[in-house]
């Protein structure tokens, strides 16, 4: 790969998606883009760079972006955030939204849908407790390819074993050869939409909970701040934001502050959610 092509690929993916690829990523670029060049009958990476520079082929640009995004996703990834959702966030929403009985959840950069579907399964498990409530789960991603997979809800034997409790596999999946398909009733609980986190949130509406985990790590500081500020605008004043274990708002934005006692969850600064002590502290203090 020519140095000027490498620089061009890095600039293009940064403009398209905000993804920062350093000089140590030339192997990643070669291994992921070579198949794209082949698929489009281009001789190699220099021909791919030339074709992208001409900017005539929207499909080529989309395949280029899809190939460079990291789409790792597990069911119930890291376990703890989902326990917290069940035990802390959900009970609070059932109190604060008791009148409207409506909750909107956003799985941002949802990849192949495992996070959104994990939340759907948690809600399903609540059974009659949620009768009369409307829960809307929206999964978005920049990649068309992963969304198609998310929508189909079909996973390999490897994928259904990473984080998914066996009881859930038995209960909510149907076996089809060596693949497993999620039940229609769970798939119907999630809507997937193509969305670039660098764009404005208009059209997505206001959310009560936003999951944006292991996404910001791929962006530079300025982009992280811009994304968090847009999320702040799209979050209900007493809503919750989830970030990944290696991510923080500290030094990035002042719009959010950590929810005390609940690692990984953030609330809008000076909001009611942040002011309210965690449930267990109240119980102990009472």
């Amino acid at each position: 790969m020519k140095p000027e092509d490498f620089a061009y690929f890095c600039k293009l993916i940064l403009d398209r998606s905000g993804l920062v690829l350093g000089p140590d990523k030339s192997y990643l670029i070669e291994s992921r883009l070579t198949p794209v060049a082949r698929r489009h009958n281009l001789g190699g990476l220099d021909a791919l760079a030339t074709a992208l520079r001409q900017n005539k082929d929207a499909k080529l640009l989309r395949d280029f972006t899809d190939a460079l995004m990291t789409n790792e996703s597990f069911f119930f990834r890291d376990t703890k955030p989902f326990d917290q959702f069940r035990e802390v966030v959900l009970p609070r929403l059932l109190t604060t939204r008791a009148t409207s009985k409506r909750v909107r959840i956003w799985s941002a950069a949802c990849s192949t849908g495992q996070e959104a579907y994990s939340l759907a399964m948690i809600l399903k498990e609540q059974g009659a407790k949620l009768a009369g409530w409307t829960f809307e789960i929206v999964g978005t991603d920049i990649s068309h390819e992963v969304l198609a997979k998310a929508q189909a809800g079909v996973y390999t034997q490897f994928e259904v074993q990473r984080g998914l409790p066996i009881q859930f596999l038995v209960k909510y999946f149907k076996q089809d050869g060596d693949k497993w398909q999620l039940a229609q009733e769970i798939r119907n609980m999630v809507q997937f939409r193509e969305f670039n986190l660098l764009g404005e949130l208009t059209g997505l509406g206001t959310f009560d909970v936003v999951f944006c985990r292991n996404v910001l790590i791929y962006f530079d500081q300025k982009t992280k701040g811009a994304i968090l500020e847009r999320i702040a605008k799209g979050l209900a004043p007493d809503g919750f934001l989830y970030l990944g274990g290696a991510e923080t708002v500290l030094g990035v934005t002042e719009k959010f502050e950590p929810l005390s006692g609940h690692r990984g969850i953030y609330a809008l600064t000076n909001s009611q959610s942040a002011a309210q002590p965690p449930a267990f502290a109240r119980a102990v203090g009472a």
Binding site: F74, Q157, F158, Q161, R162, G163, P165, I166
Partner: peptide, 14 residues
């Protein structure tokens, strides 16, 4: 729990 072979370290750990 139940693991379907083939497995890897990620699956065992999860």
């Amino acid at each position: 729990e139940y693991i379907m072979k083939p497995f890897d370290s990620d699956i065992i750990e999860a």
